[in-house]
Design a protein around this nucleic acid. Structure first.
Lengths: 253, 253
DNA sequence: CGCAGCGCACTGGCCTGACCAGTAGGCGGC
DNA sequence: GCCGCCTACTGGTCAGGCCAGTGCGCTGCG
């Protein structure tokens, strides 16, 4: 009976450097340490934590690899507390894409989910001021059409960045950025067939205008569906036959 | 003109330990190192990489903090390559929840997105065999109703775990697990009002049966909507007024 | 008096060498 | 044949040291 109630967890040694990481992360979480502020120098931390420099450094390396702080050699002000951004999600995501054999199709499905949700939220939550920004972003894309692929791609990214901001959910925003980057890294040299690049851009622009229209009308589902169709159309050709079913399953009809 | 074409990136010093991390991660990505296998001992790595042990250790700490490897003191077989799991996403996610002041409402919205997408995919992609598993999972929930809250909660988690597996997208699966854990950590002691816990459980079961029904029929959108309504109903009371609009924006109608 | 340039004190990056508490597997005794 | 100890390793931590960088204050010049 008692055996059922009280269950023991597997004990594991807690390393000193983990304690240090916890303390620093905790201080940031509690707002005692804000982005832009500085940590004491390594040698000062050694005194405060009562460990060796090697241990302090291991903790700092962990914090640095997850994008919490950045140390620069020679800076007397000490390690800097960083703003949180997609970087902290991108790294584990990239690992997932590699080690867990995440396929392009699975990434696209995730992108469809994130993008359509962001559009839906943006359409229903946008303010009039934000609508103006979005319209301006589409205008930028329109003019970028003549400035070549790179400019268009940049404007496209800015549009989606804006949408995810308007959606008001940092998790979706960062996830979107991380997945997009991972997708781009995976197919970097697959597309860019210069011949019909203009056609592709024009079609992309048309889809974005469709989304804009739905957002203007405050029609969430329509904005979501437009994005799903757009992504499906754009990527379904690059995805192996067996995975296309998953992409299709994301479509509403 | 040239200034426009060739753009320089900000150079930043590459630390030795980062090189080591790259090499080990690369070996895993390329499949040369598989989960369960062992890395050479630290002292052996020192020889292979030609650095000091401190540097090798910093690299191992980074890999360990992201859940790639695990070292145990005294184990002559060396550090172990780990299976990839939600852990690697949960940590950065938890950081996000804290440092980026991720609110409960934003987490719930993310959960709605992940859960409904998983349901939609599961409904449209399931095999008949998988359907039987899902039906069995709902049966387990039904019997768990009388075994108390903990058992029910466990069966509930098993159900969602199964759904995300059937959906066939590890990213959604891991994201779902990570977000769910974060939500639970955030409201751990908020719910569990023993008085009406049975009512809550019964309602939850009803929602799951609705989802099951849609999955049986292969009706993705219906499965998705059922999940959205269920989560909205369950959590909208716990979310501050100002954020409820975002939850509502996730609903289809 | 203002400012440009230099030097210094300090930073982080990396190394060497050492000690300790654990673990696993082989070897010896029962 | 099996059990239990012993040893050769493991990782965790420490101390101390060297080096290339950086920022700031001081100095000397205009």
């Amino acid at each position: 009976m008692i055996q059922d109630a009280l269950r023991f967890e597997r004990v594991q040694p807690v390393r000193l450097y983990e304690r240090i990481v916890e303390q620093i992360e905790g201080a940031i979480t509690r707002g005692e340490l804000r982005p832009g502020e500085r940590l004491p120098s390594e040698r000062e931390l050694v005194v405060q934590f009562g460990t060796s420099r090697a241990t302090v450094r291991e903790a700092l390396r962990v914090l640095e690899s997850t994008g919490v702080v950045r140390s620069r050699p020679g800076d007397p002000r000490g390690p800097e507390i960083l703003e949180i951004d997609a970087e902290s999600l991108r790294r584990p995501l990239a690992r997932l894409a590699g080690a867990a054999r995440l396929s392009l199709g699975q990434l696209i499905v995730s992108r469809m989910m994130l993008d359509s949700t962001a559009n839906q939220l943006a359409a229903q939550l946008r303010t009039d001021e934000q609508l103006v920004w979005i319209e301006r972003a589409v205008d930028t894309m329109r003019t970028a059409l003549d400035e070549g692929e790179e400019a268009f791609s940049k404007a496209d990214m800015a549009f989606h960045e804006l949408i995810t901001c308007v959606a008001g959910n940092p998790l979706i925003k960062l996830g979107h950025a991380a997945v997009r980057d991972t997708v781009l890294a995976l197919i970097s040299n697959t597309i860019t067939d210069a011949a019909d690049s203009r056609v592709v851009m024009q079609r992309s622009l048309a889809h974005h205008e469709e989304v804009l229209d739905a957002i203007r009308a405050g029609d969430g589902p329509r904005a979501a569906h437009a994005s799903l169709r757009s992504l499906y159309e754009y990527y379904s050709g690059s995805v192996p036959e067996t995975e296309r079913a998953a992409l299709k399953a994301m479509l509403p009809d």
